[in-house]
């Protein structure tokens, strides 16, 4: 049975830790990598240390999370130590970065490469911080400039993480076509009001929606982009169990990332997904993950 997969880097299994969930700290990444995740994407790292927004930065309900952490991060220069600790696991670490323009992105990417990450993930899609993420990602010319610049500056694979908060994600994906893989999707811009306090809950008012409730949106984007562009895709959004993961793979994802579900099920979710994948393959006579990637498009 073959469950290892290739997204420009080779992964022992399709289950990766998504950016922003328990991956700001080296020891935490190391622990998750030692417990079934095939790789981790780091918290998105910028040029400078950033405190992020004040709490509440997260609101959660049974089926969703809304977060406005505000791209808090220790800054690229402080992050080398964390990556070093995470790499003791022997598993690949993917460096997620965010910047204002092509120059910042390439500088960050070069530093990440010098820290021995296996690939770069460009965060072109965070929905709640002014001047970054989605604001960068919704400008196709800027996206293609950033991707070309970064590709020319590093020799490791480059992934682009795209925003569902755009009128035309196909155009955005085409602009990022030079990337080695596309990561779909980031959170969807959202908010929560407490009806008794009569106030928005998040200190930043707006945040990004994730968790089970966004899975159908993620599936649609993975399917649609796979159909249009036939690029390698990493699926992310609302994956809580093996059926969710298989659905993403059948829609066209070569690997999947798990984020919000870690809060419901703990880091044990990675070992469980691995066991359940084996069981699913046996029960359904599947021998090779390649046989089901994008099978729903055929």
């Amino acid at each position: 049975m073959k469950v290892n997969t290739d997204i420009g880097i080779k992964l022992k299994n399709p289950f990766m830790l998504a950016s922003g969930i328990l991956d700001e700290n080296g020891y935490t990444m190391e622990r998750i990598l030692n417990n079934g995740a095939s790789s981790t994407v780091t918290k998105s790292i910028g040029m400078e240390e950033r405190r992020g927004f004040d709490p509440p930065v997260i609101y959660h309900d049974e089926n969703y999370i809304i977060n406005a952490v505000g791209l808090s991060n220790p800054g690229i220069d402080n992050f080398e130590e964390e990556i070093k600790i995470a790499l003791r696991s022997g598993k690949p670490v993917i460096g997620s970065i965010f910047g204002r323009d092509a120059e910042e992105f390439s500088l960050l990417a070069r530093k990440m490469e010098s820290y021995s990450v296996s690939a770069i993930e460009l965060n072109l899609s965070c929905p709640h911080v002014k001047g970054y993420g989605m604001e960068v990602g919704s400008d196709p010319d800027l996206v293609s400039e950033i991707v070309s610049e970064v590709k020319s500056k590093v020799s490791i694979p480059v992934f682009s993480k795209l925003s569902p908060n755009t009128s035309d994600i196909v155009e955005e994906a085409k602009a990022a076509e030079k990337s080695d893989a596309l990561v779909l999707i980031n959170t969807i811009k959202a908010m929560k009001i407490d009806i008794y306090a009569r106030k928005p809950v998040l200190s930043n008012v707006y945040g990004g929606l994730s968790g089970a409730s966004i899975k159908p949106v993620g599936i649609r984007y993975v399917y649609e982009i796979k159909k249009e562009l036939n690029k390698k895709i990493i699926g992310v959004g609302g994956i809580e169990n093996i059926n969710d993961a298989i659905e993403y793979i059948m829609a066209g994802a070569s690997a999947v990332q798990i984020g919000s579900a870690v809060y419901k099920y703990g880091i044990g979710i990675f070992n469980k997904l691995n066991n359940d994948l084996n069981e699913f393959f046996i029960k359904n006579n599947i021998n090779d993950i390649e046989d089901i990637i994008g099978v729903a498009l055929k």
Partner: peptide
């Protein structure tokens, strides 16, 4: 320091364990 309380944000971590969870 705790920002989320539910084991997602990594701000309370000590040697890979989350103080909140």
């Amino acid at each position: 320091s705790m920002k989320c309380g539910i084991g997602l944000c990594d701000s309370c971590s000590i040697n890979g364990y989350q103080v909140c969870t």
